[in-house]
Design a protein around this nucleic acid. Structure first.
Lengths: 215, 215
DNA sequence: GCCGGAATACGTATAAATACGTAGCACCCA
DNA sequence: TGGGTGCTACGTATTTATACGTATTCCGGC
């Protein structure tokens, strides 16, 4: 295995020092670079190859999210693993959007850091169990909450709603279901009323939110 | 800690036997019940309390997904952890929909099973790293694929699209942005063309899919 | 067997969206 | 400086959607 370089980006010198010490004992690691904020890092990164970045999120001057975005614009081949103190939802979603390949909490064990480095280096992503759990909780929350005020939508209305979301006009839906266009008009009217929607756009967002239609 | 009962539902007697042996050595476990398929399980479950179910998915007579759904209709307090040989996507999404509180692969270590039992018993959910990774890969895939053919949508068009999704009519959007309604008409027309949409419904699903609008 | 809700259907009128076409102005980049 | 692009604006015609109102059939629960 080719040796890899590590870039530590964190504003706490002591943290960098400790991590550097641990990392240097790994035989698959070549050099270790350091920066104390996002801007520092961006200035140095142009000259470094074969590199995994361990990026703190909260930093002065330029935070980890901005730094990751900009770095990946310049160097799409870079691997960035975010390091954070907390498993704040807004943090990891932002980091995922920014393009991070992994996310670790600072209370992770070093063996988890090693595992993350290996996974990321081989092109996969790695997120700590806590993060994944938190993402999953969101997914499950979104899946479980809606079934409350939506129960009075009838089966037929769900059919109509589905076809509306697919982009069919009332006339087309009528043809598809072998019913009169006027009937579809009525269903649509009732749907608008029941979902307190003003128009098709509202109806579609409602349908997607309540999982009557999947994108 | 109050002792918990375990219900093993799996069609392989040997697997049940091995797991029973391991589980019996745990001091927080009280009794262990067994069933060889979903129907068996449903008949017995009415009499069991304080119970976590370890549920195989592939079974004759009634599979684990059906069994989980039905059991949770009868007993919403039940905790179900799915056990599967493979991390098939359709499996775990179905099990999550069915209401499972956890998902383990059969090649998990027993320590992972213990951890899952504890987490689930305390009201949280537990999914094995492989499963979570797989869910995450999906999420990331969905987040990373769109940014290709959407770059030619201009800033102003994104504004318009946003307000369309919010349910405003063209006239309202015009007022809001202090421009002519005919201009909004034109932007909308261009949006339909650029996104290859047929109407508002298509436009809204496009916007949501490509994160121009969040629900 | 009756009642209520769901699904079906029709009429009419207005509002909104969609589909054409044209064109000036500001800005950036070659 | 010329050409391309984005934002703005207008005209006209057609299609769809929205908002009223009314009524019949079917099915399941009381």
């Amino acid at each position: 295995m080719k040796k890899i370089n590590i870039f530590l980006v964190d504003d706490h010198a002591l943290f960098r020092e400790g991590l550097r010490f641990l990392l240097l004992r790994m035989d698959f690691i070549d050099k270790i670079f350091e920066a104390q904020n996002g801007r520092d890092f961006l200035e140095q990164i142009v000259e470094v190859d074969n590199c995994i970045v361990l990026m703190d999120i909260e930093m002065p001057v330029m935070n980890g999210i901005e730094a990751t975005k900009k770095a990946l614009e310049l160097r799409p081949d870079l691997k960035v693993i975010a390091l954070s103190m907390y498993s704040e939802e807004s943090y990891y979603t932002s980091m995922i959007e920014a393009g991070a390949a992994g996310f670790l909490l600072k209370n992770s064990s070093f063996s988890e850091v090693k595992k993350a480095l290996q996974e990321v280096w081989e092109g996969r992503s790695y997120f700590s169990q806590d993060i994944l759990q938190s993402i999953l909780d969101q997914v499950m929350h979104k899946m479980n909450t809606p079934e409350k005020e939506t129960e009075d939508i009838t089966l037929r209305e769900k059919d109509i709603l589905y076809y509306i979301c697919k982009g069919y006009s009332n006339a087309e839906i009528a043809k598809k279901l072998s019913i009169s266009k006027r009937t579809v008009d009525k269903h649509r009217e009732n749907l608008l009323q029941k979902t307190q929607s003003k128009n098709t756009a509202n109806l579609v967002t409602f349908a997607i939110k309540h999982h009557f239609f999947e994108i």
